[in-house]
């Protein structure tokens, strides 16, 4: 089998298995405004570097997506808060769980750095080790970063206005 055929086959496999995850990653962060360009660029990079794509391709691809989105934001000079856009675009027909609004507001209060690792794990479904790969840091660093971010998110939830907090959380708040 020629090298080109092998590379094509590998790329097709990576694409089939991860298209949805990359698409979702971009939608969650950029909103549906222009996700296609970013998704296309991620897979173009994957094709060009197909020899470097590891067996567990998803963290690698999300790491590329992260840089692609960062580049796009820089290029467009957009300063809009990442999360503000995600929330604005979050409208969907099904009723939201009652907890959602406050946790998203809490998410706005933590740093971008904290948000990044929290979302990779809570939304994109990566393990801590995979998130480390996507972020280009060591597993130990990711672990520390994740636990700190989770703690700060919990604090931010607790600090929200009591009327916004669903009953069980408010109870917890009052006992503090």
């Amino acid at each position: 089998m020629s090298l080109v055929v092998e590379r094509r086959g590998r790329f097709e496999q990576v694409f089939e298995e991860n298209f949805r995850a990359v698409y979702a990653y971009v939608l969650r962060r950029a909103g549906p405004a222009e996700p296609d360009d970013a998704v296309a660029e991620v897979f173009l990079v994957a094709w060009r570097r197909i020899d470097e794509v590891p067996a567990d391709a998803k963290p690698w691809l999300l790491g590329v997506a992260r840089r692609v989105l960062a580049n796009q934001r820089r290029a467009a000079g957009r300063r809009a808060s990442l999360m503000a856009r995600t929330r604005e675009d979050a409208a969907r027909p099904a009723p939201e769980p009652p907890e959602a609004p406050s946790v998203l507001r809490a998410l706005d209060r933590v740093s971008a750095r904290d948000r990044e690792i929290l979302l990779l794990i809570a939304w994109d479904g990566l393990s801590i080790e995979e998130a480390a790969h996507a972020l280009g840091c060591s597993r130990g660093a990711a672990k520390v970063r994740f636990h700190r971010a989770k703690r700060r998110l919990g604090q931010a939830i607790a600090e929200l206005e009591p009327e916004d907090v669903p009953a069980p959380a408010r109870l917890r708040l009052e006992t503090r």
Binding site: F15, R87, S102, L153, G154
Partner: peptide, 30 residues
Amino acid sequence: SDSLALLAAADPVREAELPGAAAPQARALK
């Protein structure tokens, strides 16, 4: 943990319902 579960529940994107790699736009992109 609680905060992470809350966050997961607030995911604005339903990944499983997105068009997959077999959708026409995805195949055209590939």
